[in-house]
Amino acid sequence: MKKPLILITNDDGITAPGLRALVSYMKEIGDVIVVAPDSPQSGMGHAITIDNTLYSKKVKIDLDDDNTEEYSCSGTPADCVKLGLQEILKKKPDICVSGINHGSNSSINVIYSGTMSAAIEAGIEGIPAIGFSLCDFSWEADFSQAKKFIQNIVTEALENGIPPGVVLNVNIPKLHKKEIKGVKICRQARANWKEKFDKRVSPMGKEYYWLTGKFELLDKGEDTDEWALSKGYISVVPTQFDLTAHHAIQTLNNWNLK
């Protein structure tokens, strides 16, 4: 059978260990093309470059791999997908996988995630897409513990398809593979960040700020991604890029608008 074509990207940069792990896992499933940022782009959300030039070049990260094409891009994760689909790939990929992110993108974090925004950009173009994140911010994180789960999720998506307009947000607990209980299909937990700015003064006397914050879970439901992760499950949340609050339309229609 013909191998599927897999587009891989991320937001931590093309040399990030999480992306290197994902590339090795996906090469066992299909043909891989990588288009990823040339430097870390965490927290970029769905930003795109419109007021500056974009650069891309073919690179060779794994010197022992002569089959995988890889391109670095000076832009954001969303830029990488746009550029990859429009300029680099010669045909439409069968799936786009983004990650593996160093750190969680569960709950409200999905809003800020460059990892998920890259996947969503592919979804907008009608390409099945999945964002993968490991709940471990360490650069030395062990991604191998979830290898078989990641491969299974991608294989199932390729065989069964992902519903139109839907992108999968997959988060993996920081556990040994024997401790991972399985996979749960979840909803996004309601939460926010209690944020504050740490105001400081530079040696030159100039004021500057560091954003700090504490994650606040506001949801006690047992069907959420945060609950699943806390219980040792991998969470899979079907997300959508149609931001319409359909439930609010009737309420707004009752307004006396002129």
Rank of each mutant, 00 (worst) to 15 (best):
N160R: 12
N160T: 12
N160K: 13
N160F: 14
N160W: 01
G161E: 15
G161Y: 09
G161D: 13
I162V: 12
P164F: 05
V166F: 03
V166H: 00
V167I: 03
V167P: 10
L168T: 13
N169V: 00
N169G: 02
V170C: 04
V170Y: 06
V170K: 02
N171I: 04
N171E: 06
I172E: 12
I172P: 14
I172T: 05
P173T: 00
P173G: 00
K174H: 10
K174G: 02
K174P: 04
K174Q: 07
L175N: 12
L175P: 15
L175Q: 13
H176C: 01
H176W: 07
H176D: 15
K177F: 06
K177Y: 09
K178D: 14
K178V: 10
K178P: 02
E179K: 08
E179S: 10
E179N: 10
E179D: 15
K181T: 14
K181N: 14
G182K: 06
G182F: 04
V183I: 15
V183L: 06
V183G: 08
I185M: 04
I185Y: 09
R187H: 15
Q188K: 12
Q188M: 15
A189H: 00
A189G: 11
R190V: 03
R190I: 12
A191E: 14
A191M: 01
A191G: 03
A191H: 06
A191N: 14
N192G: 06
W193K: 00
W193Q: 09
W193R: 03
W193Y: 11
K194W: 05
K194M: 08
E195A: 07
E195V: 14
K196N: 11
K196T: 15
K196E: 11
K196V: 15
D198Y: 07
D198A: 02
K199P: 00
K199R: 10
R200E: 11
R200C: 10
R200Q: 15
S202A: 10
S202K: 11
P203I: 01
M204N: 12
M204V: 01
G205S: 08
G205K: 04
K206I: 15
K206E: 11
K206Y: 08
E207K: 03
E207L: 03
Y209H: 07
Y209I: 08
W210N: 13
L211T: 04
L211Y: 06
T212F: 00
T212R: 12
G213Q: 11
G213M: 11
K214H: 07
F215Q: 00
F215V: 06
F215K: 09
E216F: 00
E216Y: 03
L217S: 06
L218C: 08
L218A: 05
K220R: 05
G221P: 02
E222C: 12
E222V: 02
E222G: 05
E222D: 13
D223P: 02
D223M: 07
D223F: 01
T224A: 04
T224Y: 02
D225W: 01
W227Q: 08
W227R: 04
A228M: 01
A228R: 01
L229S: 04
L229M: 04
L229E: 09
S230K: 11
K231Y: 10
K231G: 08
G232W: 09
Y233L: 00
Y233T: 11
V237D: 04
P238M: 00
T239R: 13
Q240N: 11
F241V: 10
F241H: 06
D242C: 06
L243G: 05
L243W: 05
L243I: 10
H246F: 14
H247L: 11
A248N: 08
A248L: 15
